[in-house]
Amino acid sequence: MLLPIVFTIIKILIIVTVILLAVAYMTYAERKVIGAMQVRLGPTHTGPYGLLQPIADAVKLIAKEDLTPDMVDRPVFIIAPLLTMVPALAGFAVIPFADNFTMFGMEIKPYITDLNIGLLYVLAISSVGTYGVIMSGWASNSKYALLGSLRSSAQVLSYETAMGLSLVAPVLLAGSLSLREITLAQAGMWFVVPQIVAFVVYVIAAVAETNRAPFDLAEAETEIVAGFHVEYSSMKFALFFLGEYANMYLVSTIATVMFLGGWNGPLLPPLVWFVIKVLFIMFIFLWLRATLPRLRFDQLMSLGWKVLIPIALANLMITAIVVHIVR
């Protein structure tokens, strides 16, 4: 009776710890990878090869004075960073990291839970993150933060539509919303092959959804200097960044599960395959940042509404018709 609960708690602890560590080291990887692309070195001084840099950053941010400006809406101001961070972590609850396996005579399920509406849950919970952005802009009581947050939330909301539509096509192919079922359905062929259009739409929407280059208008320092988090400092500021990176991991994980066959793959153990695929998508994020200029805001919106959503819809129609005929 008690054992499953203990097991679940242990799993939650492991997953949260791993994700947080992965987020911290993503900042290190980002500096190193983009540094290599830009003929720079990246961090070298903190620890061997600069490996302790994320820890130094964390210590620095914790040690900073936690400023709360006078006129802010205090409760909302404090909740907002949590609202960007926590949903991004909660999304991992339904991700199947590997297939079930047996150890010490017990069957171990390497996921916290297998909801039959897993995908819907992920989409819903990641949408909650948008509230963090809106609330931080509102609560800061600063026009710059408010404008930045309106921009970011408009961007996130419009791209979420395209993202959701592109994710429905693999669902039709698998015939299930459970992420585990979808992964199992890809044992023969990864959905990226029949659904290459949806995959491309998803990746573009995911980059925009996480406010990353070339859609990083919230951080366009040559234009508006900073976005919704302009009034935040110390750990609250860090939470926004942890949230951003955790979100990047979440969208990469979803891409892996929905299109790249999740843990499926030859020779290597399932978990290794899963990690490789996630890191590959993360690498694309960094690659884009090093390569592309930034879009203008109106171009960003028209790309979302006039290009990505129609393509995703058309793709969904065709997929639905084909699935109907084949079955």
């Binding site: 692309m37 830009q38 003929v39 720079r40 990083d216 040559t222 090093a290 592309l292 200029p293 930034r294």
Partner: peptide, 16 residues
Amino acid sequence: HALDIGAMTVFLYAFR
């Protein structure tokens, strides 16, 4: 010019 429009890498290449 490229950095202003957001292409950071060109900046570092050209300065090299």
